[in-house]
Structures are given as structure tokens and as C-alpha cells.
Amino acid sequence: MELLPVSKSEAARYMGVKGKPDSTVEALLDRAEKQVRQLVRPKYVYLETSVEFTDEGVVLGAVDEPFTGNDIRRHMKGCTRAVLLAATLSQEADKLIRQAAVNDMAGSLALDCICSAAVEQVCNRAEEEIFSSRQGIYRTWRFSPGYGDLPISLQQSILLALNAQRRIGLTVTDSCLLIPSKSVTAVIGISETPVERGGHGCAVCSMKESCAYRATGTKCR
């Protein structure tokens, strides 16, 4: 997959910019976007699996442990199937950010924020490709480990179910951080009847009390 033009307005929000970026920020983002689109080649993998609701939590057939918490149970209400998704910008993105940080912190920040916007683009396009041929179904929005009360420790089980290390080079640390860092894992519920779209974004995020974006009056997505 090749990146399409990356949303620089979204990247500017990640930088904490309110309103229209000034010419200096625009130039930083323009340069960063060109570098990222030239060097980064995103990848994603997915797997469709069964969904069962038990006393232990929401059980996905392909995953070795239940998805626990009230938020994921509400999110998946009415769903009989689900898609597990993992997407990454690959090590090239981390390398670009790291190299720029040596002598250009502003450039490194711009690259970091462009990459954050880029991985969201990849997830959106992956969803479109996955569901483009599926008619007569309804789906939830993406729900990732760490949202609401869904344990972030589920990262490991999702990657194992997807064989993500071998297929797209995506791993997770003991502290549940994804490597490469510009990566996402998520579950998308599938139903044959309309699904109730519950809380989204800050309303269910476990980081909302300490979020740097909220402190500046912006959002991460």
C-alpha cells in the first residue's frame, strides 16, 4: 500500500496547533509529508473471527483470552462476527523520526505528527478494502486495546492471532508498546442488524485525564 496525501490539518492538531497553522508550521509539515510518502510503505493484516458473549468477557474465536471490560461488551453488542486489524507504517517511520531528532527537533515533531495522521489513513483505507465487497452487514468503529476499560495487554494476543510479527513485522514490548511505534491494533464488530454506536474518542479513552492533546484543547482523533 502506498500512502495517499496525508492530512496536514490533522497532523497540525496532533502538534497542538489551534486553527490554521502559520507558514513555519505549514513548511515543516509539507517537508515531513513528502519524506514520509516517499519512504514509508504501510502494511496491514486482518482476520475475521467469531464473537461470543460469556461471563468472562467477549470471546473472539481467534484470540486466546477474552476481551474484558464493560466498554467492549457495549461496543460489540449485537455482533456475531468481528475483524481483528493490525496496521503499521513499518520501521522506516520510526527511523525517520529518530534521525531527525538528532539535530532537528521541530522537524522530528512534524514527522511524528504526520506519521500519526498517516497510520489513521491506513486504518481507514484498510477498513474500506476489507468491507468493500460485504453487502448487507453493519459494523462498529475500530476499538483498540487501551480504549475505555479494555486492557492494553491484549495487544500481544491480537498480534499472535494475526501472526503479525511474521506477516508485517509488528511486535509488542513487555510494557505493551507496539514496535514499530506508528502502528495500530483494533477490533471491528460485525452485525446483520444496525449496531448502536456508543461512546467514541475522549469519552471512552483511558488516557483522557492525562492526555496532552486535551490539555491544549484538541483531540487525537
Rank of each mutant, 00 (worst) to 15 (best):
L3Q: 05
L4K: 14
L4P: 02
P5L: 12
P5A: 11
S7N: 15
S7W: 07
A12D: 01
R13G: 02
R13A: 07
M15C: 12
K20H: 11
K20Y: 08
D22M: 12
S23W: 05
A27S: 15
A27V: 09
L28S: 00
L29D: 03
R31Y: 02
R31T: 07
E33A: 07
K34D: 11
R37N: 08
V40E: 02
P42D: 11
K43F: 07
V45W: 10
L47R: 10
E52F: 02
E52P: 01
T54R: 15
T54G: 10
E56F: 05
G57M: 12
V58Y: 03
V58F: 09
V59M: 11
G61V: 05
V63F: 06
E65P: 02
G69F: 04
N70E: 14
D71F: 09
R73I: 13
R73A: 15
R74S: 08
G78R: 01
C79Q: 03
T80D: 15
A82F: 03
A82Q: 01
V83N: 00
L84G: 06
T88N: 06
T88P: 08
T88Q: 04
Q91L: 12
A93H: 02
A93F: 00
D94T: 08
K95F: 08
L96S: 06
R98F: 13
R98N: 11
Q99Y: 13
Q99E: 15
V102K: 14
M105W: 10
M105L: 15
S108A: 15
S108W: 04
S108G: 08
A110I: 04
L111K: 00
I114A: 01
I114Q: 01
C115S: 10
S116W: 03
A117P: 00
A118K: 01
A118Q: 03
E120K: 09
E120C: 02
Q121Y: 09
V122N: 00
C123Q: 09
C123D: 06
R125V: 04
A126K: 00
E127K: 01
E128Q: 13
I130N: 02
I130Q: 03
S132N: 10
S133A: 14
Q135K: 14
Y138W: 15
S144F: 05
P145W: 01
G148F: 06
S153H: 03
Q156L: 11
S157W: 04
L159H: 06
L160D: 14
A161Y: 01
N163Y: 00
R166H: 10
D174T: 11
S175F: 10
L177K: 13
P180V: 07
P180Q: 07
S181I: 10
K182E: 10
K182I: 08
S183K: 00
V184D: 07
T185A: 08
T193Q: 14
P194W: 11
V195L: 11
E196H: 12
G198M: 09
A203F: 08
V204C: 11
V204K: 06
K208M: 08
S210W: 08
S210H: 11
T216G: 09
T218G: 13
T218V: 15
C220Y: 10
